[in-house]
Write a protein that binds this DNA or RNA. Structure first.
Length: 308
DNA sequence: GCATGTCAAGTTGTG
DNA sequence: CACAACTTGACATGC
C-alpha cells in the first residue's frame, strides 16, 4: 500500500506557522525575548495539532513537520530550551497530543533539517552547529513521535570519499535518539544513491530515495536498481521505506529541471513503486492539493493507497 | 496601502 | 569573483 505524505505547508487549508528573526529579538531584554518566542512556539505547537488533524481528515497518511516549529531554538545568541519558556509545559502538552493523535491514526511523521545542516563539512564550526541543530530535531522528533530525521550528504569539497568519512565520524557524536532516526537522501547535485548506499550500510541507517534528484543527478543505476538499493536499507532496520517524489516545473527537456512543479505529473511516478508498501513525500508547490490530486490519479490507475 | 528588501546558518554551479 | 538557488513569513522601510 502506498502512503503519500504532505511536506510542511498547506495552500487551501487555513494552517499557517509563525516565525521571528534573531535580529528582531536581538535588542530586547531576555525576558521579553522569551515572551515573544514563547508566544510563537505555543501558537505553532497548537497549529501542528491542527495540521495533523487536517492531514487525517484529508486521508493523507504522512506529514513532514516544519523544522522552524520552535523558532530560533539553536541560535547562538537567542537560543533557549522549552524549560526557559513561560508556557513550556503547555507546548510539551500540544506536542504530546500530536504524538498520540498520529499514533492513534497511523499518520507517519518526519523531519527534514535544511541545507545548513552538514555533517560532511571540513569546517569545525559548521559541524558543531549541525550537531546542535540535529539534537534539536531529535528532541522535537521524540516529543511528537516522528521516526525519520532525513539529511543530505552535504558538499563534496573535491573528495567525496573523504567527505563521507567525515560524515561517518560525526555520526558517532550524535545522541541515540538522533542516530536511531537519521536517514540519508540522495541530492540533485552531489551525492547519488550509489554514493550513499555504502555509508548507509556501514552506519546501519536507511536511505531515502528521491527519484526526482536521481533524474537530475544520475549515477548509472536504473530507477528499479536504486529503489531496490534503498529498500534493502529499510528492510535491514525493519521499517517502512520512505521515498520522495516531485515533478520538474519546466519540463524534463530544459536545462534546469530541478525546480519543483505545482503538481505531480502521474507519469513521473515510477512504475516499480506502485506495488510497494511505503511512504512517499510529495514535494510539490500546490501542497495538499497536489497530494490529493496524485492520490486520485494513482487510484484511477489501480494503485492501492493508504486510507483510514 | 502597496512594493520591496532583509533575515543565522552551506554549498555548488553559473554568469 | 559575485550571486542565485534551495524556501517562506514577518516586519521595516520607502514610495
Amino acid at each position: 500500500m502506498i502512503r503519500l505524505g504532505l511536506c510542511c505547508l498547506f495552500v487551501d487549508q487555513p494552517i499557517r506557522f509563525r516565525t521571528i528573526t534573531a535580529k528582531r529579538l536581538a535588542g530586547l531584554p531576555r525576558v521579553e525575548q522569551l515572551a515573544r518566542i514563547n508566544a510563537i512556539c505555543h501558537e505553532n505547537a497548537a497549529t501542528l495539532v491542527e495540521a495533523v488533524h487536517t492531514v487525517r481528515r484529508l486521508r493523507i497518511g504522512a506529514y513532514r513537520i516544519p523544522s522552524p516549529l520552535l523558532a530560533r531554538y539553536t541560535h547562538p545568541e537567542v537560543g533557549y530550551t522549552l524549560d526557559d519558556l513561560p508556557e513550556g509545559g503547555m507546548i510539551r502538552q500540544h506536542l504530546a497530543a500530536v504524538r498520540l493523535q498520529s499514533r492513534a491514526h497511523g499518520i507517519r511523521l518526519s523531519l527534514h533539517p535544511d541545507q545548513f545542516v552538514v555533517l560532511s563539512s571540513p569546517r569545525r564550526q559548521v559541524v558543531e552547529s549541525s550537531l546542535r541543530e540535529l539534537e534539536y530535531h531529535g528532541l522535537l522528533a521524540e516529543l511528537v513521535g516522528a521516526d525519520v530525521i532525513n539529511l543530505h550528504g552535504g558538499g563534496a569539497y573535491g573528495d567525496k570519499q573523504a567527505a563521507l568519512a567525515r560524515l561517518h565520524k560525526n555520526f558517532a557524536r550524535l545522541s541515540e535518539r538522533v542516530r536511531q532516526r537519521l536517514t540519508l537522501e540522495n541530492d540533485d547535485r552531489t551525492y547519488t544513491v550509489a554514493d550513499l548506499q555504502p555509508v548507509c550500510r556501514e552506519l546501519g541507517i536507511p536511505l531515502v530515495y528521491d527519484v526526482h534528484h536521481h533524474r537530475c543527478n544520475p549515477d548509472g543505476l536504473s530507477e528499479t536498481a536504486a529503489t531496490e538499493a534503498a529498500l534493502a536499507t529499510w528492510q535491514a532496520v525493519g521499517r517502512e521505506p520512505h521515498f520522495h517524489l516531485s515533478s520538474p516545473r519546466a519540463g524534463w527537456q530544459l536545462d534546469d529541471r530541478r525546480p519543483h512543479a505545482d503538481y505531480i505529473e502521474p507519469d513521473d511516478f515510477p512504475d516499480c513503486w506502485k506495488v510497494l508498501d511505503c511512504t512517499i513525500d510529495v514535494e510539490a508547490k500546490a501542497k495538499e492539493k497536489a497530494v490529493l490530486q496524485l492520490q486520485a490519479d494513482l487510484r484511477q490507475r489501480g494503485v492501492k493507497l493508504w486510507s483510514r
